[in-house]
Each structure stands twice: as structure tokens, then as C-alpha cells.
């Protein structure tokens, strides 16, 4: 296990280095340089600015400085918002995105396991068909449409009831988080429900279920203790990729619900061509996703020892 952990961590660091290099290369392929947009600049000011941001050095040296800064956790200063460090931006906006994402994951995982178990329990009966219909809908309807429709129906519900059940946008209280988190988790929940259903149906026919039944265990106990427990295992494996999906899905949800998260900030930075913020957030998000996937894999290794042998 220790060896496996070590191997995965090393692999993770190399991947982050690859992401950082790819981002650096990508940013240096852009025509022009970060100072092109600045208006009417004398040669001296330009030279000063270039010296300040290290743009006058050869690309190789810039790359080394960039790697050194990342290694020490310093992403530099924003190009468009003077005197604002990228670290500050991440520190301020990432917790918002993370809270939203965490809620969405919780919602998706509980909903997925619950509905998946229900569909398997009521296989080929009305509840199964009803849930699977919504699952197919959840997979086919793009997240931003769900977000827009969710907001639209909330407006109508608020208008119909005559008081504000939940706020339609913004951020701050728990009430602000509920609808965005549900919308954000919906796609993943649909996917998890489908996965849970097939995993439940597969396990029904396995030997240990038959043994449990043969020993005379009550059906409820077989279902809860043996079937449900083992069927939820695959759900843990896809949580890693699900975190990635939910993080990027957050861009849209943050945009629609006017939530001050890092995703919205990233999109804004791209629109303003804010070099350091783009590079910083990409590397930060990339590292976050890579290590989340590794963490989920390691946790899975604890839950299911068979994985460690691979």
C-alpha cells in the first residue's frame, strides 16, 4: 500500500509538472505578449515593466523561474488588477467553488446510491421506469439548461407563493447554495444512478448473495447489508472523475447563479487576457483535480483491497 501510494504521488507530481509546462507553452504560443494591450507606452516604461515581470529574460530562464515560483506556491501578481496576487484571488474565490462542489458531490452521491438502489429494487416496475426516465433526461440535458430552468422555476415558485422560498442568485447563506448545488450535482447523480443500478443487478446473481439467502437471512438484511454495501463500491471509483466534472460544471452554474467562485473568475480572466491569473488558476485547478483523483483511488484501495494488487 505504501509503495502504491508513493508511486501514485510521484505520478501525480509529474502530471502537475506536465500541466504546468503545457500551460506555460500554451501561454507563450499566444501572439504578442502580456503588455501589448497596454496603451501608449514609452520604450523605457515597457523595458521597466518587462524587467519587473521577468519578460526580458530568455524563455528557458522564464520557464525555470516559473517552475520555481510554482514549487514555492507563488503564482505571481495579476496583470489586470494591479497589486492583487493570484494567491489572494485563489484564496478568496476557491473556497466558494469548493463549498458548492462539495455540496453537489454529496447530493449526487446520496441521490445516486438511493435512486440506483430503488430502481434495482423495483426493477421493470413503475418506480424504475420513472427514475430511469429522469436519469436519461439528466444525462441528455446540458447543465446550463438545467441551471436556467431551475432558476426560472424558482422565480415562478417565489412569485406564486408570494414570498422568497430560496433566493434566485447570489451567495452567502445556506439558502443560496441549495439550488446551485442540486443543479450542479444533477448530471453526476444521473450517471451514478445508472452505475448503481447495473452494479446492483450484477450483484443480485453473485454467489455470496445466494449464500446469504441460503443461510436464511431475511431479505431486508441481504439487501441492506450485502447487496447495497457491495454495490456502492463502484460509486466511489467514479467520484474522482466526478469531482473533475463538477468543478468544471461549476463554471456554468457560477455564471448563471452569479456566484463569486473561482470558475467564474477564470472565465473572466480569459476574457481580460490576464496571463498570470490564467496560468495560476489552470495549474491550481489541474493540481487539485489530479490529487483529488489520487486521493479517491487511495481511499478506494482501503475500502476494496483487491484494487491494491493491480
Amino acid at each position: 500500500m505504501l509503495r502504491y501510494t508513493f508511486y501514485r504521488l510521484i505520478q501525480g507530481f509529474i502530471t502537475v509538472w506536465f500541466i504546468a509546462t503545457a500551460t506555460f507553452t500554451a501561454m507563450h504560443m499566444i501572439p504578442g505578449d502580456p503588455l501589448t494591450s497596454e496603451k501608449a507606452m514609452t520604450a523605457e516604461i515597457r523595458a521597466n515593466l518587462e524587467a519587473k515581470y521577468g519578460l526580458d529574460k530568455p524563455v528557458g530562464e522564464q520557464y525555470l523561474i516559473y517552475l520555481k515560483n510554482i514549487a514555492s506556491g507563488d503564482f505571481g501578481i495579476s496583470f489586470t488588477q494591479k497589486n492583487r496576487e493570484v494567491n489572494d484571488i485563489i484564496r478568496e474565490h476557491f473556497p466558494v467553488s469548493a463549498t458548492l462542489g462539495l455540496l453537489a458531490i454529496l447530493f449526487a452521491a446520496t441521490g445516486g446510491v438511493l435512486f440506483g438502489a430503488l430502481t434495482a429494487l423495483f426493477r421493470n416496475r413503475a418506480p424504475d421506469y420513472a427514475i430511469m426516465f429522469f436519469v436519461i433526461l439528466g444525462i441528455s440535458v446540458p447543465g446550463f439548461v438545467v441551471a436556467a430552468l431551475g432558476q426560472l422555476s424558482l422565480v415562478n415558485i417565489n412569485a406564486f407563493l408570494g414570498f422568497t422560498v430560496l433566493p434566485v442568485g447570489g451567495w452567502g447563506t445556506v439558502a443560496h447554495m441549495i439550488l446551485p448545488a442540486m443543479v450542479l450535482g444533477l448530471g453526476t447523480m444521473a450517471y451514478l444512478t445508472r452505475l448503481m443500478r447495473s452494479s446492483m443487478l450484477e450483484i443480485v446473481n453473485s454467489d455470496f448473495i445466494r449464500t446469504a439467502r441460503a443461510k436464511g437471512l431475511p431479505a431486508t438484511r441481504v439487501f441492506s447489508k450485502h447487496q447495497l454495501r457491495n454495490a456502492s463500491l463502484p460509486v466511489v471509483t467514479v467520484l474522482g472523475p466526478a469531482i473533475a466534472g463538477i468543478t468544471t460544471g461549476g463554471f456554468v452554474v457560477e455564471y448563471v447563479f452569479a456566484i463569486p467562485g473561482l470558475g467564474r473568475y477564470f472565465v473572466q480572466a480569459v476574457q481580460q487576457t490576464d496571463y498570470t491569473v490564467i496560468m495560476g488558476t489552470t495549474v491550481f485547478y489541474g493540481a487539485f483535480l489530479v490529487f483529488m483523483v489520487i486521493a479517491v483511488d487511495l481511499v478506494y484501495g482501503f475500502i476494496d483491497p483487491r484494487v491494491r494488487l493491480k
Binding site: 506536465f18 503545457a22 500551460t23 504560443m29 468544471t248 490564467i278 489552470t282 485547478y285 483535480l289
Partner: peptide, 18 residues
């Protein structure tokens, strides 16, 4: 493996920028 590990939509946006 490394290309798979790249955050997909983030890089799609970066490419648009490039």
C-alpha cells in the same frame, strides 16, 4: 496518460485563448 490528466475544459478555454 498525461494528456488524459489535463483538465479538459480548462485547456479547451486555454486553446481558444491561444
Amino acid at each position: 496518460d498525461f494528456v488524459v490528466a489535463l483538465p479538459f475544459l480548462l485547456f479547451m478555454i486555454l486553446f481558444k485563448f491561444i
